[in-house]
């Protein structure tokens, strides 16, 4: 589904991603772990199309298209979704109206008719139930005054509404209590099919008990330095990152 090759990206002259290679196939779940500042969110942002980052080398092929050439909205329309680590608050913009506009713009691009108000509301009802998003939150301004956990639920609610092919969840588990974690993870699992793929960024093995990954990668200083199965996450939980840093032999 997505093939990332030798991806280099920098911001303000500092190279953050230093040659990422990663292929994710339909139906797979990949997890990326790694110390703070290693470039996990940067990778997510570059894939979603944030233009502050300059891609200096490499390529990303998404379903046969050169993803890096697309505008953020066209990536979303092609089926890329990013659940942000820090979802932004947008006062004055209704959570529900903006989603409706977005969905209908996507449908228009795909040559589909706009969703009727009734169908849209039906979907909102179903999908918000999936992540137990409080009814009140749907009608408020986007993320405004939401608690940390509510913001994360709202991200997964949007993911459910947009039905992406490839989702990146950037630390969706941080800020969630145990019950909320289970609810959100269940939601993500329900959205999983053999035709879509998920990239989960996390610091905690705990999440991976619920969303079981096929592969776990360790990102360190802008490179994937180790790849394994779900047991790698357990090992990291136990031993930390030091042994990998030594293994990788990467110097600052």
């Amino acid at each position: 589904m997505i093939k990332i090759e030798n991806l280099h990206a920098s911001i303000e002259g500092t190279e953050i991603l230093r040659g990422i290679n990663l292929e994710i196939k339909a139906g797979e779940v990949h997890a990326i772990m790694g110390p703070n500042g290693s470039g996990k969110s940067t990778l997510a942002s570059v894939l979603a199309g944030r233009d502050e980052y300059e891609v200096t080398e490499g390529s990303v092929n998404f379903l046969g298209e050169d993803l890096l050439e697309l505008e953020p909205e066209d990536r979303a329309r092609a089926g890329v979704f990013l659940a942000f680590q820090y979802p932004v608050e947008i006062p004055g913009v209704s959570n529900i109206n903006f989603l409706k506009t977005a969905i209908n713009e996507i449908r228009e691009k795909r040559g589909q008719d706009p969703l009727s108000a009734k169908d849209f509301l039906q979907q909102v009802k179903e999908k918000s139930a999936l992540v137990e998003l409080d009814g009140k939150l749907k009608n408020r301004s986007v993320n405004e005054g939401f608690s940390g956990g509510e913001k994360k639920r709202n991200e997964i609610f949007q993911m459910a509404m947009l039905e992406p092919k490839f989702s990146i969840l950037d630390e969706t588990d941080s800020g969630l209590d145990i019950d909320a974690l289970r609810v959100v993870a269940d939601g993500v699992n329900k959205l999983k099919t053999k035709d879509n793929a998920t990239l989960v960024i996390t610091h905690y093995q705990r999440l991976l008990d619920y969303i079981v990954p096929d592969f776990v990668h360790v990102l360190y200083k802008g490179r994937i330095v180790k790849t394994g199965d779900k047991n790698l996450a357990l090992e990291l939980e136990e031993k930390g990152y030091d042994w990998i840093k030594d293994d990788a032999g990467v110097t600052a």
């Binding site: 979603a48 199309g49 953020p72 909205e73 990536r75 979303a76 947008i90 903006f98």
Partner: peptide, 14 residues
């Protein structure tokens, strides 16, 4: 905020 909205499929204009 602009990026957030666009990342959900909204055109830059809207």
């Amino acid at each position: 905020a602009l990026f957030y909205l666009r990342s959900r499929g909204m055109s830059e204009k809207s």
